[in-house]
Simulated assay, not measured.
Amino acid sequence: MEKDLLKLLKEGGLILYARHGTATVGVDQAKGLFQSCQYQRNLSEQGRHEAIYYGQMLRYWQIPILAPIIASPFCRTIETALLAFPNVQVQIDHFLFEIFMLGGNLSNVQQNTILMAFQSMLEMKPPEGINRVMIGHSFPENVGLGDISNMGTVVVKPKGLGQGYEVLGKLTLEDLAKLDSI
């Protein structure tokens, strides 16, 4: 992992793709009714604490964050964003639902279409001196950004549209707490 990751995060220009906090056990039954939280897996108490801690750690390390925070339309991702960044606007991006769908039974064509669109998102550089935060879902193993722990973050350096991106590191919530020693 990059030795100066904290320095790079403070300089900005990166994308922090984070998975939501720990959710309740069960299966999502929303079928597109994202405002119906009772049909979804939601944040557990532990997940709420993780989300709050995540935001506290980013503020503690003085990592500049771009508003709005981008979140998947699920209640657990929106709540994660609101708890982590209580004074920052949250913008729902329905495309991040597609990431969630990668865990389903998709054809190779469907999967590749989603991954190519996601790559384009990760290639777009945020404004200089600030980082973009996306709160979404884990990926299936060896797909996209791979498996991400609850409230884990993949730190991505965009190279510009059509130029690709580089994964600088994958941080667990515990890693984030000790960034200065990584």
Rank of each mutant, 00 (worst) to 15 (best):
D93C: 13
E50F: 05
F118I: 00
L14K: 11
S72F: 00
L176A: 05
V167K: 12
V27A: 10
L5H: 13
V27F: 10
L9A: 14
Y53E: 15
Q56E: 08
W61V: 12
D4M: 06
L179E: 07
L8K: 15
L179Q: 06
S107R: 04
Y60P: 13
S120H: 09
Q40H: 01
L43G: 11
V167S: 07
F34C: 05
M1V: 05
E174Q: 07
S120Q: 15
Y165R: 03
P86W: 09
S181H: 15
G21Y: 01
I65N: 04
Y53F: 15
R48A: 08
Q38F: 04
G160S: 04
S149A: 13
E79C: 04
G103D: 07
M57L: 15
K3E: 07
G47Q: 06
L66V: 10
Y39L: 15
T24G: 14
G152T: 04
N105H: 06
L83H: 01
L179W: 02
A18K: 02
P158T: 07
I15A: 06
F139P: 00
D175S: 14
A18F: 03
H94P: 11
G144M: 05
G103Y: 10
L14P: 09
E98I: 09
M1F: 10
G160H: 01
K170F: 00
L179C: 14
I130P: 04
Q91K: 13
V143H: 04
T113K: 04
P64H: 07
T153F: 09
K159Q: 08
R59G: 13
Y53K: 10
E123A: 13
K3S: 02
I70K: 12
E2A: 13
K125H: 01
Q91G: 08
I63D: 02
L168R: 04
I70W: 11
L14T: 08
S120P: 09
A67M: 12
A23M: 03
L115C: 02
V155M: 11
P140G: 02
G12T: 12
F118L: 12
V90S: 03
L176E: 05
Q46R: 02
R41L: 11
I69P: 10
D4K: 09
V25M: 10
N131E: 09
D4Y: 02
T80V: 06
L106R: 07
Y60A: 11
M124E: 14
M101R: 13
Q119P: 03
L14V: 11
I182E: 05
